[in-house]
């Protein structure tokens, strides 16, 4: 017998279930309880950079929208700094860079307003292209799914991004690109997430 390692072991995940809104977004569950719900304002009023909107739907293996999904977003500011002690630099007053997104219970459509993030340091080679980390939970999802949203109009940065380049199947990289359009002079990016199928979104073990 050898000595024993004394690391603890991570608590296992369980599905967020159909009533995740009660805990994380009670207004969407149909009642008001807290003085303020968290995660409604990602960028805050003082954030520099381009104001954008991101919209999409999560689609299951039958092609149906997932109508009880909850998504959390985590991003850097326009300078590429995260609002965190190890985030690289200072962020604007009121910039948290984190948001909670609820979909419409009838259509599954979701959307949020933020600022476009800047490039962030990579682990080894070169910077990471602007991206937003997403974490997806719902009934039927046993452990939260991690993915990243990249911007299709950042083609040079995307081509050099160390994470996109890690995806061996080049065709699948496109599943992480949000498509840009304009609405009332504002940039709107479309990012549909497919849980299964030929165009299954790339998910990460982070």
């Amino acid at each position: 017998m050898a000595q024993k390692l004394d690391y603890l072991r991570e608590t296992p995940s369980q599905t967020a279930g159909p009533y995740v809104h009660i805990g994380l977004a009670p207004g969407a569950a149909g009642f008001s309880i807290y003085a303020q719900e968290l995660g409604h304002d990602i960028a805050g009023p003082n954030a520099r950079g381009e104001r954008i909107r991101i919209e999409g739907v999560v689609i299951d293996g039958t092609g149906s929208p997932v109508k009880d999904v909850l998504i959390e977003a985590w991003q850097a500011n326009a300078d590429g700094y995260y609002a965190h002690p190890e985030g690289g630099g200072p962020v604007e007053e009121g910039f948290r860079g984190w948001g909670r997104v609820i979909c419409d219970f009838e259509t599954g459509e979701w959307g949020f307003d933020t600022v476009k993030p800047g490039p962030t340091p990579g682990r080894n080679i070169g910077p990471q292209a602007p991206h937003i980390s997403l974490w997806i939970v719902s009934r039927g999802i046993n452990i939260g799914l991690n993915t990243r949203l990249y911007f299709e109009d950042e083609s040079a940065a995307n081509a050099a991004d160390p994470v996109l380049n890690l995806i061996e199947w080049e065709r699948r990289r496109a599943t992480l690109l949000a498509r840009r359009s304009e609405r009332d002079g504002q940039g709107v990016y479309r990012f549909d997430i497919r849980l299964q199928g030929d165009d299954e979104t790339v998910f990460f073990d982070v």
């Binding site: 965190h84 002690p85 039927g140």
Partner: peptide, 25 residues
């Protein structure tokens, strides 16, 4: 419910970058 909501491709493994090491405070 997991049957239609479970990805079929393997997850792509990432080493932690600043995007994973930081989180909301």
């Amino acid at each position: 419910t997991s049957v239609a909501r479970s990805p079929r491709y393997p997850l792509i493994s990432l080493q932690s970058s600043v995007s994973e090491i930081t989180g909301p405070v």
